[in-house]
């Protein structure tokens, strides 16, 4: 794609701004800021990736992944601000997810150990886990609120906090997984995934593009379930005090 063609595609943004103004939606400023941010961020990442791919140093790849995980952790932790050590809990979860998935991908020689493969695939895994983490915290909050009396009942009968919270955790994990599972069920029927579309437009054979997309689908499913389970297990203890009483404040005051 030429620079001129890319510049011309800005007419879509212009169209959105005109529509927003016509219908008095008040979104013009947000649309322009979002466009500007996306452009700058993607251009920078394009140059950074170019630089990293050129270096082919695994430690640089590792550093880059840590940066991605840190940003994702900070993002998810906003949902559970009052959960003690929330950022660290999310960070550890994402590191484990990344280690497990990359160990399988590289260990079975599914992808070559080069920055060109590791970074984009990790980006998709971490991004998906980030969305899932936020969703889990939201679901956990509503489940705990809804089933608070049930948790207190189990505690009152001498159940441990783990026994009392486990049914609620399972529900929250199940609910948070629904969008991932549903999304994958309709893949190819309702939507063509972005990565596959990008590869096809860039000239790759559609079958090759599908193979890579399937790799992402399979990896995403595993990373999603690991994220949900680990994060829920990390958050659960902070919902109880030393007297094994339910404390809903960590979730209540979250934004």
């Amino acid at each position: 794609m030429t620079i001129i063609a890319l510049t011309l595609s800005l007419c879509f943004v212009l169209f959105a701004v005109v529509l927003s103004r016509s219908f008095k939606l008040g979104l013009e400023k947000d649309v322009l800021i979002a466009t500007l941010r996306a452009t700058i961020q993607l251009l920078i990442i394009g140059y950074v990736l170019n630089f990293i791919f050129g270096l082919e140093q695994l430690w640089v790849v590792g550093l880059f992944l840590l940066l991605m995980i840190t940003v994702a952790s900070l993002n998810v932790s906003k949902k559970g601000k009052s959960v003690p050590y929330m950022t660290i809990k999310v960070f550890i979860t994402l590191v484990i997810v990344e280690i497990v998935t990359q160990a399988l991908l590289l260990g079975f020689n599914i992808i070559p150990a080069t920055a060109r493969y590791i970074i984009p695939i990790s980006g998709m895994i971490i991004g998906n886990s980030m969305i899932l983490g936020s969703l889990l915290v939201t679901r956990l909050r509503s489940e705990v609120t809804l089933r608070q009396r049930e948790i207190i009942l189990l505690l009152s009968l001498g159940g441990t906090p783990r026994q009392a919270i486990m049914p609620v955790l399972k529900s929250a994990v199940r609910s948070s997984m629904i969008p991932t599972i549903d999304g994958q069920k309709t893949l190819g029927l309702v939507q063509l995934p972005g990565m596959m579309t990008g590869q096809i437009i860039a000239g790759a054979d559609p079958i090759t593009a599908v193979r890579f997309q399937l790799l992402i689908v399979f990896t995403t499913m595993t990373s999603a379930i690991i994220t949900s389970i680990l994060l829920s297990l990390f958050i659960a203890p902070s919902l109880f005090n030393k007297q094994q009483q339910l404390q809903t404040e960590p979730l209540e005051s979250s934004s």
Binding site: R147, R149, E150, I152, L153, L154, L155, S156, L157, G158, G159, T160, P167, Q243, Q244
Partner: peptide, 20 residues
């Protein structure tokens, strides 16, 4: 031990909460 205490001292609540 908290769980032992709660086993020994049972409580029945007014709203009779149930496990699903």
């Amino acid at each position: 031990p908290i769980t032992e205490l709660r086993r020994n001292v049972g409580i029945v609540f007014q709203d009779a909460p149930m496990v699903q």
